[in-house]
Simulated scan of single mutants.
Amino acid sequence: MGIQIEYLSLAELKSQPLAWQNKVLGLVSFVDAAGVYEAQKINGQIPGIFLGASVLSGAESASEILLSDESSMDTKQPLISGEQGQIRYRCNGDLLFGVISLDEASELIITSPGNPFSALQQATEIAYQQIFTLLDDLGFPNVYRFWNYMANINGSDGDDQQNLERYRQFNIGRKNVFVKMGREHGQQLPAACALGLKGGPLTIAFLAGKAPAIAIENPRQVKAYNYPEQYGPRTPSFSRATLVHIEQKACLFISGTASIVGHETLHAEDITGQTQETLVNLEAVVSEANRVQGGAVFDLSNACFRVYVRHAADLDSIRETMRNHFSHQVQAVFVQADICREELLIEIEATLQQTSIAHAA
């Protein structure tokens, strides 16, 4: 079975008929305080994360929905919903989408004074170990995409020996499990993002499948897993994008992308410069994916973007810079969130699809 991706408002999501809901693998949605209550009316069989964050613009695209596309199949195969540990998931014969939320005050976390490992590192290790155990148990060996959200990403708790920034604590936990579970394949790491919200548990969504994937890197950037030690004792475990063929479609899952060249942040305190550099990096990733694919398969100008904005006051500048870059209004949702480096003001992610592999040059 293939995959179809749609972007809807929360109201549109709630109003979809049951036949449509029965095709949903999972979703990632941003909602305000009132939206959290409304989200409870969504079909409970659908694994989804509803993240409390201010949607600054583009509320009509605030929910990214991944659906099982049965158009190429002679017979329809129903989705199977399940739970394992703290994970809720849905899968068909080819794809699995799952979500897990783990509070750092959970009884699973050891908070004794002598424990050198922070609550966030422990929560990360527990969550990722559960994820990879599930995928091994159900036979979905390839992860295409992770979405990671946590509170106070640039802060430090003061409860571990090194008083590390929380994003670095997260990276330690994630890397430890990748290595332990035999997932640290270097050249074949999945796409990912990691963003900071005002509060809430560590929340992770993931998409995995049986078809192999190709990790895509940005020629303008050092691979994240090769970052120097100045960015923390454990490097981030992700690639810049993942290219995968699912049935008759090529899909490109682009990681959260920011104003980084080599491994250094550029245009500090300059939102226009950071936005422009981020768009250049996105174009570089798409160009590399098209090179690997062997033709102009993906076109960034047709993408729906999720734009994470540190300061709401920067919204107008970001939107104008994006309009100038693409020469037209783009589809995007702008969400207020903190980025993994304190000096970064913006991060953009996207998912691109090709209509048919047969159209590739």
Results as ranks from 00 to 15, higher is better:
residue 141 P to Y: 06
residue 198 K to T: 07
residue 53 A to M: 07
residue 355 T to H: 07
residue 200 G to T: 05
residue 78 P to L: 14
residue 136 D to G: 11
residue 53 A to R: 10
residue 172 I to L: 12
residue 31 V to I: 14
residue 141 P to G: 10
residue 47 P to V: 04
residue 355 T to I: 11
residue 337 A to N: 06
residue 45 Q to F: 02
residue 30 F to V: 08
residue 203 T to C: 05
residue 87 I to E: 13
residue 247 E to D: 15
residue 325 H to P: 03
residue 327 S to M: 00
residue 113 P to R: 08
residue 20 W to G: 01
residue 251 C to G: 12
residue 4 Q to N: 15
residue 184 E to C: 09
residue 225 Y to Q: 06
residue 160 D to R: 04
residue 341 R to W: 05
residue 275 T to A: 10
residue 353 Q to A: 13
residue 180 K to L: 13
residue 240 R to M: 10
residue 57 S to R: 07
residue 189 L to M: 06
residue 347 E to G: 11
residue 164 L to W: 13
residue 111 T to D: 13
residue 279 L to G: 04
residue 44 G to V: 01
residue 288 E to V: 01
residue 97 F to R: 10
residue 317 S to R: 04
residue 9 S to H: 03
residue 319 R to T: 01
residue 14 K to Y: 08
residue 91 C to E: 06
residue 284 A to L: 10
residue 104 E to A: 04
residue 253 F to S: 00
residue 300 L to I: 11
residue 100 I to E: 07
residue 76 K to Y: 04
residue 311 H to E: 14
residue 20 W to F: 15
residue 268 A to C: 13
residue 217 E to L: 08
residue 338 D to H: 07
residue 328 H to N: 03
residue 254 I to D: 11
residue 49 I to C: 11
residue 169 Q to I: 03
residue 277 E to V: 08
residue 348 I to D: 10
residue 269 E to D: 15
residue 4 Q to I: 05
residue 49 I to M: 13
residue 182 G to F: 05
residue 280 V to R: 14
residue 199 G to W: 07
residue 119 A to R: 10
residue 216 I to K: 03
residue 7 Y to L: 00
residue 346 I to Q: 07
residue 218 N to R: 05
residue 147 W to E: 09
residue 196 G to I: 05
residue 200 G to S: 05
residue 64 E to W: 04
residue 311 H to L: 00
residue 191 A to P: 05
residue 160 D to H: 08
residue 219 P to S: 03
residue 176 N to P: 00
residue 177 V to S: 04
residue 37 Y to T: 15
residue 205 A to V: 12
residue 113 P to A: 12
residue 212 P to G: 03
residue 273 G to E: 06
residue 207 L to H: 02
residue 30 F to M: 11
residue 352 L to C: 09
residue 287 S to A: 15
residue 191 A to G: 02
residue 97 F to L: 08
residue 241 A to M: 12
residue 345 L to I: 11
residue 346 I to E: 08
residue 216 I to V: 13
residue 34 A to M: 09
residue 201 P to A: 04
residue 110 I to S: 05
residue 179 V to S: 00
residue 46 I to H: 01
residue 207 L to V: 13
residue 276 Q to C: 00
